[in-house]
């Protein structure tokens, strides 16, 4: 049964994410398949009441029979939908922002930042080699610091097959 009040929810421990048997929803278009409910705001609203939460969890169990711990499942739904809402809000803000195309606005820094971000996510392990000149530009970035943040999170998620097979965090010239 759900807890008596949604505010009783403790944060889901990092090691418990993702909850066994409950897929992470990457896009709002997947909501109906995973939660049996397609409206993000409605899912969030249901989490706020005991009745709504119980109904939602029942739908989720029906859609995902592998879910063993419904309380943790509810916590994951809360966290997952919170991030979906934040992402939606952020992308909407960026669409309205009076920027030109970012690469044309501020080519060098944005290009290098994109590479840094992608590299930190291990995408370079797919075969991408940093051009030497870019490595030079990257030498200014305290990659260890940025990498520490990501590695901490990523290593906890490693068992979840987020990365493609063989992919690893790797930044040229940086050893952790």
């Amino acid at each position: 049964m759900p807890r008596s009040h949604p505010t009783d929810m403790a944060p889901l421990a990092l090691k418990d994410i993702p909850v066994e048997g409950l897929p992470v929803v990457k896009d709002t278009r997947e909501l109906a398949d995973v939660y049996g409910e397609k409206d993000l705001k409605l899912v969030r609203a249901k989490l706020q009441t005991n009745e709504g939460k119980a109904q939602l969890l029942s739908q989720i169990q029906e859609k995902n029979p592998g879910v063993k711990d419904v309380e943790k499942a509810a916590d994951q739904v809360n966290l997952n939908t919170e991030q979906l809402q934040k992402k939606e809000g952020f992308l909407t803000r960026m669409v309205k922002y009076p920027f030109r195309h970012p690469y044309k606005t501020a080519a060098g820094v944005i290009g290098v930042s994109a590479v840094v971000a992608a590299t930190l996510f291990g995408l370079n392990a797919l075969g991408f080699k940093l051009p030497a000149i870019i490595e030079g530009a990257l030498s200014a970035v305290p990659l260890e610091k940025v990498k520490d943040i990501i590695t901490t999170i990523f290593s906890l998620g490693r068992g979840t097959q987020v990365l493609p097979p063989g992919a690893d965090l790797g930044v040229p010239g940086v050893t952790v």
Binding site: M94, A107, G108, I110, G111, V112, I134, I149
Partner: peptide
């Protein structure tokens, strides 16, 4: 690619929303 500006031009076909998604994630 020889310099960061060329890299940016090379990445020019990638929709800005992809870049924003990466920044949202980090």
């Amino acid at each position: 690619i020889k310099n960061p500006s060329e890299l940016a031009e090379h990445l020019g076909d990638v929709p800005p929303s992809t870049l924003y998604t990466i920044f949202f994630t980090i």
